[in-house]
Design a protein around this nucleic acid. Structure first.
Lengths: 163, 163
DNA sequence: GGACATTGCCTGCCCGGGCAGTTAATAAGG
DNA sequence: CCTTATTAACTGCCCGGGCAGGCAATGTCC
């Protein structure tokens, strides 16, 4: 429980945030929120150019890649639930970017397909989003970039595999 | 456009995400979202123990620290807007955690104060939240932790200072 | 075949954020 | 003093997420 002193080896953990010796500004949650908010604001402005919001690109890209994703599989891959995905697809369908059609073989599932407009829009996404990402990664070396991504994956993984 | 080869010095940037050679899973936005979602889920469960959600702690902590924050100053410090903060304070007030009282000296502002319940609740926050943060940082060395925070601050700063 | 569980989709309900617009109060300048 | 700008708080509208519940279709087991 108490600090074993000695080498600060990995998996020491346990005490980055102890007692009340930290404030909101120092918290990893706050920093993550700030970083994502900054990225989302920029993405929002950039994606507005092709009529999307900062999160609507993800389902579109996954449909465009093929593999016939369903609402349920999209929800799993994007770590949300089917309810939120239904409403997301509602908005994308309302914008005329995709069509929904009941499957013949399994009448529970809805087949998703991009419209021509949806395909054109999706083609533009990587460049727009790439600009946003690159500008936010200014000053990062490739090694730092890789480590940054590794940190994010580790944190997420620590959450899904509770300790 | 094409890779300049040579040294991978800092501020090379520009081309972490180019063309369409990347997928949703690789995007820094997706990774940030996943990490924050994981942290938020855990925080949500932990904070439920004291009757809060994963974001309601921040205003409470800031009020508890003193300095007589207002809705507007809280919104600034938490990088949101006064509209969202008004509704957040509505919910906290409805839970009986704080009181609002029109200021006598400047009748535009509303003075915020924790109730006794609010103070007791706030006292528990650092320990609960610390548990969540530490568990998600398992495997991080102190140096990695510091670098992680630095990365997040750099990314957020790159966004606020457009390039 | 019939009971039961599972799966996919959809719908409320609530929390939460961004943005625009309104009102009231204060500050600044003529 | 009066006009104008600024500020604080609030409200409405929309997007978006988590959760629970419902329904229909499918799969499983007896």
């Amino acid at each position: 429980m108490s600090a074993p002193t000695e080498v600060p080896t990995a998996t020491s953990a346990e005490s980055f945030y102890s007692g009340s010796g930290w404030t909101a500004e120092d918290s990893i949650g706050h920093l993550l929120r700030q970083a994502l908010a900054s990225l989302s604001r920029a993405a929002e402005a950039e994606m507005r150019l092709c009529g999307l919001t900062s999160v609507q690109w993800a389902p579109l890209m996954m449909i465009a890649r093929g593999g016939h994703p369903t609402a349920a599989s999209l929800a799993r891959d994007l770590s949300t639930d089917t309810g939120a995905m239904t409403r997301m697809l509602d908005r994308l369908e309302a914008k005329g970017l995709l069509t929904r059609r009941r499957s013949e073989t399994d009448r529970r599932v809805v087949e998703l397909a991009l419209t021509e407009l949806g395909r054109q829009t999706t083609d533009q996404i990587p460049l727009h989003l790439g600009r946003v990402y690159n500008s936010h990664l200014g000053g990062f070396t490739p090694a730092e970039f890789d480590q940054f991504k590794a940190f994010l994956r580790r944190l997420a993984h620590n959450g899904s595999a509770p300790g």
